[in-house]
Design a protein around this nucleic acid. Structure first.
Lengths: 174, 174
DNA sequence: GCCCACTTGTAGCGAGTGCTACAAAAGGCT
DNA sequence: AGCCTTTTGTAGCACTCGCTACAAGTGGGC
């Protein structure tokens, strides 16, 4: 049992139950070990969370890369729809639940979570900028515009008001 | 000491320390009473949280109405900037910290928080729709578009990437 | 065999959690 | 004054929390 063999099960646990308030004993149980061993491997709770955030970021990145379409969209709205569709898939949905946990911790001043969230946004921004429509007049600014809109959509979806974002996108298209 | 006299101090406490994971004893201490009395007045912890969410929603609404400019903007971008500026003010900033706490709880399935968040979004949407530029061709759809973008901006700001949203808005204007 | 470093289990500490039983105070009503 | 309802304090229960002391196992190198 190394930390590398433990992390997948631990990640599955926090994807289901949240990471900001996770406690050692349930986390250890999910990984088939004891709180004692988590402390042994990761030093303390914060060490486990740090390792988890790293692991989950990589997990999210590979999952995203596998799911995102390779070919570019024809226009900005289609790009938005591509991402919204991909992140709504079952395999990435748990990451969205976790995401707001990370954002909340970041907003309340936790630097570890803030950095993790910021780098995730950087990741998405890079992909977006590289996959803007070919004829886009301003891929750099457009990618930032779309990312902001996309994240607003995700939040509204999280609180059950996906209808607002959908109507907003429709207004953009129409 | 009625619940009405307790709520302001309790609200101040959760605005600073978050509401989703608040515990009775610190909350009671902040309100100058005991956990015993919170249970007496609100039945249980959930009752206190419910009352707090209600109270905070009203507090936010009045604070917002007082701060939002009365006159309409000339274009959509200016409307966005109006709201972003207002919600970034010191008096409303604590609400933003609390907001992501509520969103995270909503995203992880708590129906109380979900309803509270959804109704807050409804509130903002109503104001936006009523204050769209006069010559806007589609105030209804436009308001939804702007709200989605605005909320994306707020999130990016919460994780320290306000630069992305700012550049996105600039791209929209330029 | 023998030693030694690595890994794991057991038990527990001090603190905090929501909540309750019980009783004392307090204040209005007759 | 006497009563009775509302409000409050004290003490505690059963539980979880992160973490640690201590010791037992485990396996490789000599």
């Amino acid at each position: 049992m190394t930390r590398e063999t433990l992390l997948p099960a631990m990640a599955a646990h926090v994807l289901e139950h949240g990471i900001a308030g996770v406690s050692l004993r349930p986390l250890a149980k999910a990984a088939g070990t004891s709180d004692r061993m988590l402390i042994y491997h990761f030093g303390n709770r914060q060490g486990a969370i740090d390792a988890l955030l790293d692991y989950l970021a990589k997990l999210y990145e590979t999952g995203l890369e596998a799911a995102l379409p390779a070919k570019r969209a024809r226009n900005r709205c289609e790009t938005v729809r591509q991402i919204l569709q991909v992140t709504a898939a079952d395999e990435l949905k748990p990451f969205m639940r976790l995401w707001w946990d990370v954002v909340a911790a970041a907003a309340s001043g936790d630097e570890t979570f803030r950095k993790s969230a910021a780098s995730t946004m950087g990741l998405l921004l890079d992909w977006l900028e590289a996959h803007m429509p070919e004829d886009d007049p301003d891929p750099r600014g457009g990618a930032r515009l779309l990312l902001t809109f996309i994240e607003g959509s995700q939040m509204l979806d999280a609180v059950g008001r996906a209808d607002i974002a959908e109507a907003g996108l429709a207004a953009l298209e129409g």
